[in-house]
Design a protein around this nucleic acid. Structure first.
Length: 656
DNA sequence: AGACCGCACAA
DNA sequence: TTGTGCG
DNA sequence: GTCT
């Protein structure tokens, strides 16, 4: 009897059903992430059922361990072999509040297994007749609520409930415990009842493993903890020895990119180092290949001359400075930058984890490691490293969709707008160039229309629908008006219907609200990006001002300097010191992260907002900060994250 | 067919 | 109440 | 727009 546990950080489950398997597998195959999957024969050959887990929408997170533990040859066991289900909850904050549910059709008994970023609940299935037809709705909220309830309670859940309370949704992931004998051999098979996340005893190290003789030191920066964990396990399992210090014994150093290398390692030490410095990718590729692959393409040169590299020590003290800079949240620039940084990251992780054979063309296979290291070498020393843009491969599509996002938003059709927004995210992550709509069929968020649109774009290079919009005067004016601060879709439409067509027209309109007038007056100013140095000036200026004089709670307005015309849009939020951390978290964003944190808080019986973290007031939901219940005391963002059990993210990492 | 955030604030 | 903007 |  074995409990299959959901690894940390999993948030998505895909069940491949008989008949559908191949389609889905083909879909999966297109994601580099899936590669690991192919290194497991039991999956490769005859999967009837398999469960793959993805980290968020970053498909690249599927890992060997995940698949190994979760791919489950149901054909062998048959549903009857299923004795227990453990269900993992993790909010999916990529979507806004849509309810997702996973379906079960049986009675079960459940209790909390553990809590944490993804809380785990054990379900005991009654009776051997477990129908996995996934018919009945099982609702997220039910589980969420249950997290705080300790004693097992029997539930028959047939209804579907709305996920309320927070506008995040919960995704439920399922893993199995089965009584199957034919499970891929693994010792430590004694029965493990589960209340704790059962610690998988990894298979014992194999002295003959492909990595035997290696003593490795892992540079962890820039690597997702889940992946790291898996790599470590793999290394050990395959005979390598892991050093926690960069000592003489080390024969191999692994690093995600040359960037991470230069940031984390003492150069002198590195210069003296005689061993090999390899990209983690080598590890992945070797695992996939089942043997050590040539190190040629993965070796990083140690360049002692890399002196314009930021001081490594900076890392420890860096945070303070950063948070200073953004104590006041100012605007597009900063946001934009983090976005770009992030995209860069994604690209990196794609490149490094792609170890596929099929989806990539042979040429890209051989050339990519080179590109990887060389492009990164080039980046060293470029302070912001905003060099590369995201995987641009399908830019034609995402750009067009992006325009539609804006247009629909301007028109007030948020739903549709958001649909495109989601589709972009999906398309953007594809590691190949779309050549036909078939290639996107079945991807989440891509339905009939998206497929059609994509088809049109890849064949004609444009989208008639968009062209239509762009030439339509109504759409154009409404979009334009909507760019004015304070004017939304509704107002824009009214103005259009009143006959206005240009911003100048609006100047004579007397029905505008105060902020709209201002927004109009300073239209160009507001659109002008604020130079970062100016943001910093603002901050220091404000520091002084703020010290004497009392402050407004919130200010959304325009900023200028005495004697200067140009105005910038600036928001001020003022928080008492004791709840400052909460304000900071909330206003730093991003929205997705906020939803996640809030949901997490809720699942633990708290309510989080920008004013604090409150024990949930049972009953009427509890109004913001009211009810005499004071916020928990937290001084720093870190404390908030820690308290909630959410892995710490630097501000620039919060673009989820 | 009907779902698709929730809140505070200003007009 | 509605619209708007915020994450 | 997509999803159930």
């Amino acid at each position: 009897m074995r409990v299959l546990e959901m690894p940390d950080g999993c948030s998505f489950v895909l069940v491949l059903e008989p008949g559908k398997s191949f389609t889905l597998l083909n879909t999966l195959k297109r994601f580099n992430a899936v590669l690991d999957c192919w290194s497991y024969p039991e999956i490769k050959c005859s999967i009837v059922w398999a469960v793959a887990i993805f980290k968020s929408v970053v498909w690249a997170e599927v890992t060997a361990r995940t698949l190994r533990h979760l791919s489950f040859p149901m054909s062998d066991a048959g549903p009857d072999g299923l004795k227990k289900l453990s269900v993992c909850l993790e909010e999916d904050s990529t979507d806004r509040g849509a309810l997702r549910s996973i379906s079960f059709d049986f009675c079960f008994n459940w209790h909390v297994v553990s809590s944490g970023p993804s809380s785990c609940i054990m379900l005991e299935v009654y009776g051997s007749k477990v129908d996995l037809s996934w018919n009945t709705r099982y609702v997220a909220k039910t589980l969420t609520r249950g997290i705080n309830r300790t004693p097992p309670c029997l539930q028959r859940v047939t209804q579907r409930r709305r996920l309320t309370g927070s506008h995040s949704q919960v995704k439920i992931s399922v893993s199995f415990e089965s009584a199957v004998q034919s499970w891929p051999k693994q010792p430590g098979d004694e029965k493990k009842m589960a209340p704790k996340r059962t610690k998988k005893t990894a298979p014992p190290p194999d002295p003959q493993g492909i990595f035997s003789g290696m003593t490795v030191f892992l540079i962890e920066s820039g690597v997702q903890s889940l992946r790291l964990k898996i790599w470590k396990e793999k290394l050990v399992q395959m005979g390598a020895k892991i050093e926690t210090q960069f000592s003489e014994k080390v024969t191999h150093v692994f690093v995600i990119s040359s960037d991470a290398l230069s940031n984390r390692v003492d150069e002198d030490q590195l210069a003296r180092f005689k061993g090999h410095v390899l990209l983690y990718r080598w590890l992945e590729d070797s695992l996939a290949a089942g043997e050590k692959v040539s190190e040629d393409f993965y070796t990083l040169k140690v360049d002692p001359a890399g002196s314009d590299i930021p001081d490594p020590k900076r890392n420890s003290s860096g945070y303070d400075e950063q948070s200073q800079c953004k104590r006041i949240k100012l605007s597009p620039i900063e946001i934009k930058q983090t976005n770009e940084e992030r995209k860069g990251d994604i690209e990196t992780s794609f490149a490094s984890s792609a170890s596929d054979t099929e989806p990539r063309s042979p040429s890209s296979i051989t050339s990519s490691p080179e590109n990887l290291s060389s492009s990164q070498d080039k980046d060293i020393g470029v302070p912001t490293s905003l060099q590369h843009s995201p995987p641009d491969i399908n830019k034609d599509i995402t750009e067009i969709f992006g325009k539609l996002v804006n247009i629909y938003r301007a028109l007030g059709d948020d739903r549709r707008s958001f649909s495109y927004y989601k589709a972009i995210a999906v398309v953007e992550k594809l590691p190949f160039k779309i050549e036909s709509a078939d290639q996107v069929k079945g991807l989440p968020g891509i339905g009939k229309s998206m497929q059609d649109h994509i088809q049109e774009i890849v064949t004609t290079g444009k989208l008639s629908k968009l062209e239509h919009f762009e030439t339509d005067e109504k759409v154009r004016t409404i979009s334009l008006f909507g760019e004015v601060w304070g004017i939304g879709p509704a107002t824009a439409l009214k103005l259009y219907e009143k006959g206005h067509r240009t911003l100048d027209d609006l100047k004579n309109e007397d029905s505008l609200t105060n902020s709209q007038v201002i927004g109009l007056k300073y239209f160009d100013d507001i659109k002008t990006r604020i130079p970062r140095h100016e943001a910093q000036e603002m901050e220091s200026l404000l520091q002084k001002v703020a010290e004497d004089g009392c402050c407004v709670d919130t200010y959304f307005g325009l900023w200028t300097y005495p004697g200067r015309e140009l105005r910038h849009r600036v928001d001020f939020k003022v928080y008492p010191r004791d709840i400052y951390a909460f304000g900071l978290v909330a206003w730093t964003g991003n929205d997705v992260l906020n939803r996640r944190l809030r949901l997490l808080a809720e699942s633990k019986g708290y309510r989080l907002d920008d004013t604090g973290l409150f024990p949930a007031t049972h009953g009427s939901g509890g109004k913001r900060g009211s009810r005499g219940t004071a916020s928990l005391k937290m001084e720093t963002e870190k404390e908030v994250f820690d308290f909630l059990g959410f892995p710490w993210l630097e501000p620039h990492e919060r673009n989820l």
